[in-house]
Design a protein around this nucleic acid. Structure first.
Lengths: 109, 109
DNA sequence: CAACTATATTACTGAGTAGCAATTTACATT
DNA sequence: AATGTAAATTGCTACTCAGTAATATAGTTG
């Protein structure tokens, strides 16, 4: 319960984490990882993004604590660090959904 | 329960909303609004940001559905649109806190 | 209507970063 | 050791956007 004080410094840290999720490419990568652990090359194939690109996105997601890595020989397997990411994405997804519903109702009315 | 399909288009919308929260200035504005409805000029005084700057941030937050507006004479009062924003920010704040705890433990050990 | 005030908008500059190509690093196999 | 492969890193270009100053818009008051 030790509530963290919302100093500008803490807010910058929070903002950094939101920024990590503020990129469709990274959301897509996280979405892929929902199915389970995957190597970088798998994610490259799955998403169609370039290898360097995927690698950089994964570095950022790892730095921000959203994914964990596991090295096996040449391969590096990435996986979601915890379930908390779902809550964040699902909450935001719900907001989008609600907004679309409101929009539809407005057009219909 | 009507789960929205995670098409790239939907993910872009979700990313846009995360992006709105991915800015310390906007988090600070939202944090101010936690105390209650405020006019633009109040937020300018409270945060120390420029008027144009605050206005632009508020536009974006409004577009993304995070704040509602209410015009009274010359003044425009902004307020948090709902409680859902707390959940998002608090969740992210919790992640930061947990990370700092882990960091401290690592240094101590 | 003229002067004033709160907010919004516009035009601009500088900083950050996504994406790509090329290279490097790390490990494996022969 | 030499070759091959997966992932990381680097250098680059193009684009986005935060912040600011100046201006425009909308409302109020004399």
């Amino acid at each position: 319960m030790s509530k963290l004080k919302l100093t500008p410094e803490v807010m910058a840290l929070v903002a950094d984490r939101f920024k990590a999720l503020a990129e469709p490419a990274r959301l897509q990568i996280l979405s892929c990882l929902r199915a389970g652990e995957m190597a970088v090359s798998d994610l490259v194939n799955e998403t169609g993004f370039g290898q360097a690109n995927v690698s950089k996105h994964l570095q950022l997601l790892h730095t921000m604590g959203f994914v964990r890595r596991r090295k096996v020989g040449l391969f590096v397997y990435y996986a979601l660090a915890d379930k908390g990411i779902f809550q964040l994405c699902d909450t935001m997804c719900g907001r989008v959904e609600q907004e679309m519903k409101r929009r539809r109702k407005l057009l219909a009315g």
